[in-house]
Amino acid sequence: MSAQFPVARPRRLRRTPALRRLTAETRLHPADLVLPMFVKEGIDEPQPISSMPGVVQHTRESLRKAAHEAVEAGVGGIILFGVPAVKDAVGSAGDASDGIVQVALRDLAADLGDSTVLIADLCLDEFTDHGHCGIVTPSGEIDNDATLERYASIAVAQAAAGAAVVAPSGMMDGQVGAIRSALDSAGHENVSILGYSVKYASAFYGPFREAAECAPTFGDRAAYQQDPANADESLREVFLDLDEGADMVMVKPAGAYLDILRRVRDAVDVPVAAYQVSGEYAMIEAAAANGWLDRDRTIMESLTAIRRAGADMILTYYATEVARKLG
């Protein structure tokens, strides 16, 4: 039996910042952080994203500069999203050798070498004129199996351009297996797959759709992303992705799904990522701008909570800023 008051005084270990640091159970490290970055084709200077203050759509040159800054701060990885100048029904820019993501990956691979991990988001919504994550049939349905063919081709193109990790985010059934097969057949067996295995149909993605210019022109993505009311199917999705060859899995969003993150972490023996998404970022920035929250404390508390819930790595737009503070 543990001691009782007055012998037991837990506050003794909270008295000073030094004691709290020494006895902290959860720690953040710069290498735990992954910076999401947007690169847009055909612009001459970075374009601010109104709903995400401080985040921009990069030019190729500004992307290279910001990536260097992230690496110098100790950030563990960069995940890249592209905004092409021309979009079409099948997302042709997604796997074009001169597509904006492939061009940017080659830039960063040449600049950074093995000093960071280059991750390519793998989806179609950024490249299609209808904004959906897959091929749309004449009746307005998403053709799962036709979409897998496009994902496989995009994966090979991203790997050839220098991605060390591809991250399929479209929530199509069988996507990891199709991508793994395509990568292996093309000689990219060492390229890893980070599956967006648990991705909910969330309202927190709103600002991202401005950043990537990928809002659906009709309907929504609830037919392929997960229902926020469900938890058990998350583990099913995770195990399916692992069976198909995923090397890592992700939970997205992070803040509203910490319970899911904990369940996934407890169930698997591979690295688990969590994405602090655009809406989470925007809420902190808006509340801080209005003086309702202490910005720095809120950022650190939110990231610590994600780490405490089980994330081995955190995708966050605060990655460079926080890495500098931690370093």
Rank of each mutant, 00 (worst) to 15 (best):
A3T: 13
Q4A: 15
R14Q: 14
P17W: 01
T26D: 10
T26A: 11
R27Q: 13
L28K: 06
L28T: 13
A31V: 13
D32W: 00
P36I: 09
M37A: 09
E41A: 15
E41L: 10
G42L: 05
G42A: 15
Q47F: 00
I49C: 08
V55N: 01
V56N: 06
T59R: 06
S62M: 02
S62N: 05
A66G: 02
A73G: 09
A73V: 12
G76M: 02
I79H: 01
F81P: 07
G82V: 08
G82M: 03
G82H: 03
V83R: 02
P84W: 02
P84R: 06
V86Q: 13
V90N: 02
G99R: 08
Q102L: 07
A110P: 00
D121N: 13
L124N: 04
D129N: 13
H130N: 11
G131E: 06
G134K: 03
I135A: 01
S139G: 15
G140A: 10
A146D: 10
L148S: 11
E149D: 14
S153Q: 10
A155L: 05
A155W: 01
A163H: 05
A163L: 08
A163S: 12
A163I: 11
P168E: 02
M171P: 02
M171D: 05
M172D: 04
G177R: 08
R180M: 09
A182R: 00
A182F: 01
S185W: 00
H188Y: 14
V191I: 10
V191C: 10
V191R: 01
I193T: 07
I193Q: 05
I193P: 06
G195H: 12
S197Y: 00
K199S: 04
Y205M: 08
R209A: 12
E210G: 11
A212F: 02
E213M: 10
E213L: 12
A215Q: 09
T217I: 12
R221I: 11
Q225S: 05
N230D: 12
D232M: 09
E233H: 09
E237V: 06
D243I: 03
E244N: 12
V249H: 08
K252E: 07
D259E: 12
R265F: 06
A267H: 08
A274V: 14
A274H: 06
S278P: 13
S278C: 11
G279Q: 04
G279L: 05
E280G: 15
A282G: 12
I284E: 02
E285N: 09
A286W: 01
S302I: 06
S302P: 04
T304K: 03
I306W: 03
G310Y: 03
A311K: 03
I314S: 08
A319F: 04
R324D: 04
